[in-house]
Amino acid sequence: MMNSTPDEAAVSVDGLSVDRGGHPVLRDLDFAVPTGAVVGLMGPSGCGKTTLMRTLVGVQRITSGTARVLGHIPGAPTLRSRIGYVTQAVSVYRDLTVEQNVAYFATLAAAPRSSAREAIDTVGLGAYADRRVDRLSGGQASRASLACALVGSPELLVLDEPTVGLDPLTREELWTSMRALAENGVTLLVSSHVMDEASRCDSVLLMRDGRLLAHEPPQELIRSTGTDSMDEAFLALIRTQQEVAA
């Protein structure tokens, strides 16, 4: 496990469990996300990544355990301007321009209008600010969603599968933008089911069936499992889990 005390962490979770429809989705999770880090939340579809993110942004009820986000319980009013959340679906109005979308979100966040342009430039869409979202590529639309989450200079970004379906060049550009944000002190929790994206993260939270298998830097996970890739490391952890449960 990464060593980070709750006081130092942007996110800290202790014994967190979440049930949905009477069925367990998250099972007794413990971890901490250091401030200013890029942390990958990884695992197969259905492992609980989205539920965990929804819990941390305060839109999912906790069954047991605790979570703290920037020192507060998830969903606390004081967090509204301090967290940016991007869902898997493109969360912008397609009949509006990029600038109109981002300016609208800036208004909701009570942020100055200048922050809209700053967010657009941060994600590399300055040349497309006047273009309607329905005339953008899929990758550009994803970056427009990210720009909307950036207004008001949030301290924590929670990004659910932001690179899914993107071509390699656009994915590279988006990761470059996210790394630049981290270098400026923003904490990023980024979910993905593509294991090769782990190398872009400072550490990875590996999940399966609602359980946390590991939280380590990617190279440390590969070394400790005696494997050559994140895919192999993940499979090795699953085998270890099955052996312990047997």
Results as ranks from 00 to 15, higher is better:
144 A>R: 00
219 Q>Y: 10
76 A>G: 06
26 L>A: 08
55 T>V: 07
206 L>S: 07
117 R>E: 12
95 D>C: 07
218 P>I: 08
44 P>S: 10
109 A>W: 07
196 D>Q: 14
170 T>A: 15
118 E>A: 15
232 E>V: 10
97 T>L: 02
134 D>G: 00
102 V>L: 00
14 D>L: 11
99 E>I: 12
203 S>H: 13
96 L>T: 02
18 V>Y: 05
13 V>W: 01
170 T>V: 13
150 L>Y: 03
115 S>T: 14
2 M>G: 00
97 T>D: 02
246 A>F: 10
13 V>M: 04
54 R>D: 12
82 R>D: 00
121 D>R: 12
21 G>A: 09
109 A>D: 04
82 R>S: 03
103 A>H: 10
55 T>H: 04
66 T>L: 06
31 F>S: 03
55 T>I: 05
78 T>G: 12
133 V>T: 11
177 S>M: 10
93 Y>N: 04
169 L>S: 13
43 G>P: 02
51 T>G: 08
235 L>I: 15
101 N>Y: 03
233 A>G: 05
182 A>Q: 02
107 T>W: 12
154 P>S: 07
167 D>W: 06
88 Q>H: 11
63 T>Y: 08
205 L>N: 06
19 D>C: 12
132 R>E: 04
142 S>G: 13
145 S>T: 13
110 A>W: 12
52 L>G: 02
169 L>R: 14
112 P>N: 06
100 Q>D: 13
109 A>V: 09
24 P>W: 09
99 E>K: 11
23 H>L: 14
235 L>Y: 13
86 V>R: 03
28 D>R: 11
28 D>L: 09
235 L>T: 14
21 G>C: 08
71 G>P: 06
22 G>D: 06
138 G>N: 05
240 T>E: 15
144 A>N: 02
81 S>C: 11
17 S>W: 07
20 R>W: 12
164 V>A: 15
114 S>D: 15
50 T>G: 08
146 L>Q: 01
186 V>G: 02
157 L>P: 00
65 G>Q: 00
24 P>Q: 09
54 R>C: 08
8 E>P: 01
48 G>K: 03
91 S>Y: 00
191 S>R: 05
106 A>K: 04
61 R>A: 14
98 V>E: 06
117 R>Q: 12
82 R>G: 00
140 Q>H: 06
58 G>K: 01
218 P>M: 08
8 E>M: 13
192 S>R: 06
115 S>Q: 12
195 M>L: 15
49 K>Y: 09
246 A>Y: 10
91 S>W: 00
197 E>W: 08
234 F>M: 04
131 R>G: 05
200 R>Q: 14
15 G>Y: 07
190 V>Q: 04
8 E>A: 15
168 P>M: 03
53 M>D: 05
39 V>L: 10
3 N>A: 15
240 T>N: 14
33 V>H: 01
222 I>T: 08
29 L>H: 03
45 S>C: 11
165 G>R: 07
63 T>L: 10
203 S>R: 11
57 V>R: 10
72 H>N: 13
118 E>N: 10
182 A>T: 09
142 S>M: 12
116 A>I: 03
70 L>S: 03
62 I>V: 15
201 C>Q: 03
173 E>C: 09
56 L>W: 05
196 D>N: 14
32 A>S: 15
98 V>H: 01
125 L>V: 02
169 L>W: 08
201 C>P: 02
